[in-house]
């Protein structure tokens, strides 16, 4: 009852770009505080919006009120030094590791308000690609892709297998469907994991350094799949150190350091010679190591 009254009397929470409250930022989540409602915004909601994500571990603040938005078809690239909170941010957005403060909206729906069951529905709308693949070791490539279709979406075995084969075909691995993860190369494993995520028809894909655990000659095949996805209109947020690859695909770099997004902008802007940005400094160090 109290909560309802609070909701009714609370002023609409401010959001970035809200015309009625210029300069307002979204309110970080706190118990008892009025909920951040995406409906308060007159603008159509972003496909995905992370608002004031905060995450602490003990005394350490891993994420400091990080906000970002993704619109349909966007590819945004998170770069920055290790330990800056990039992976943690992806896990918080996915609610795999629920944030301590802030909220995530998918199509305007708050993840914070969801029940445990609905969080599972929320998660399956967002695909996650992990640095070390995390394929299910005891299942074949085909079953890796089909298992969630069968157990989460409740599809029949035949339908799930058909779809799994279609997805494996899309990443060029239909001929490897009966092999187990231990029989695949790193690049093939990562492509299976992409197929596994795609089979769930996610609205957004989060990619956490998808090529960092790969041998250099295997990186290309994975990047090719990611590029195809982007050209197919998939909305993606990618953490990567492949700056050379990313700068040609993305319109926006987000530079993350010490739990904050400290710089953002187009690659041209940030990487322009003499821009003096932290991003350009970081990227030139990276390219020294990677040799271009």
């Amino acid at each position: 009852m109290t909560a309802q009254l609070q909701k009714a009397t609370a002023p609409p929470a401010g959001r970035p770009g809200d015309p009625e409250r210029p300069g307002a930022t979204c309110t970080p989540y706190a118990p008892g505080a009025p909920p951040v409602t995406a409906a308060a915004s007159p603008a159509p909601p972003h496909l995905l919006e992370a608002c004031g994500i905060t995450k602490t571990m003990g005394d350490k603040i891993l994420l400091h009120e990080v906000s970002l938005t993704l619109d349909r078809g966007d590819l945004k690239v998170l770069i920055g030094p290790s330990g800056g909170g990039k992976s943690t941010l992806l896990q918080c957005i996915h609610f795999l590791n629920p944030p301590d403060g802030g909220d995530v909206f998918l199509d305007g729906e708050s993840a914070r308000d969801m029940s445990r069951m609905n969080i599972c529905l929320f998660r399956r709308e967002i695909g996650m690609i992990f640095q070390d693949f995390n394929l299910f070791d005891h299942l074949t490539a085909r079953d890796n892709v089909a298992v969630a279709l069968r157990r989460v979406k409740g599809w029949a075995k035949r339908e799930a297998y058909d779809r799994a084969m279609a997805e494996l075909d899309r990443v060029g691995l239909a001929s490897r469907a009966d092999l187990y993860p231990a029989q695949l190369s790193g690049g093939q494993k990562q492509r299976v994991s992409i197929a596994r995520a795609l089979a769930m028809d996610p609205k957004v894909m989060l990619l956490d350094e998808p090529t960092s655990a790969l041998d250099p000659e295997l990186i290309g095949e994975v990047l090719k799949v990611i590029q195809d996805l982007h050209e197919g209109g998939m909305t993606m947020l990618m953490v990567t150190h492949q700056v050379g690859f990313a700068r040609h695909m993305t319109k926006e770099f987000l530079f993350m350091e010490s739990g904050r997004i400290t710089e953002s902008g187009s690659p041209e802007e940030l990487l322009r010679d003499g821009s003096g940005s932290r991003t350009s400094d970081f990227c030139s160090k990276l390219s020294e190591i990677q040799g271009g």
């Binding site: 998660r123 995390n134 979406k153």
Partner: peptide, 9 residues
Amino acid sequence: MAALSLGFT
């Protein structure tokens, strides 16, 4: 974690 990310309970 990967299973959770696919929507498993």
